[in-house]
C-alpha cells in the first residue's frame, strides 16, 4: 500500500520497538502539530504500543506547542507502563530542550542505536 502523503510520521517496527520518524522539517503551525499529536497518541491509545523511539533527524524547527505534544505523549507512554526515547536531535533543537529543562524529563539519545539500546 502506498504511504499516506499527509502523514506526519513514518513508522517502522524494529524488534518490537516502534521507531517513528517525524517527517516535517518545521513543526510550527497548529494544524500540523495537532495532526502530529493525533498520530503519536494513536500509537499508544489505539495500537497499544509501549516501546517508542521518536527520530528527529529531519526536524529543523520546533515550537513550544510541539513540545507540549511530546510531553503529553511521554505521559501517555509512561502511564501505560512503557518507555519513550528521542534521538538524532539537531543542535538548535537540542538547545530548546535544554532551555526548557525537558532534557531532564525526556530521554534524549544521540543516535537511533543509542535509543534502541534503552529498551
Amino acid at each position: 500500500m502506498a504511504p499516506n502523503p499527509n502523514r506526519r510520521i513514518d513508522i517502522e517496527d524494529m524488534n518490537g520497538v516502534i521507531v517513528a520518524t517525524l517527517l516535517e522539517k518545521k513543526i510550527l503551525d497548529e494544524p500540523n502539530i495537532e495532526s502530529l499529536g493525533r498520530e503519536l497518541f494513536a500509537l499508544v491509545d489505539t495500537e497499544g504500543r509501549r516501546k517508542i523511539v521518536l527520530d528527529f533527524h529531519l526536524v529543523e524547527y520546533l515550537s513550544s506547542a510541539a513540545l507540549g505534544k511530546l510531553i503529553t505523549m511521554h505521559k501517555k507512554v509512561t502511564t501505560s507502563g512503557g518507555r519513550m526515547a528521542l534521538c538524532n536531535i539537531q543542535k538548535d533543537i537540542l538547545d530548546v530542550f535544554k532551555i526548557t529543562r525537558l532534557d531532564k524529563v525526556l530521554t534524549l539519545c544521540t543516535s537511533l542505536d543509542d535509543a534502541l539500546s534503552k529498551f
Binding site: S64, G68, K69, I71, T100, R101, L102, K104, V105
Partner: peptide
C-alpha cells in the same frame, strides 16, 4: 522549568 510545572504541556513560549 520548576518541578511543579515542568510536565505541563503549555506555558513555555515566554521562556523561549
Amino acid at each position: 522549568t520548576s518541578d511543579e510545572f515542568i510536565e505541563r504541556p503549555s506555558g513555555r513560549g515566554l521562556l523561549l
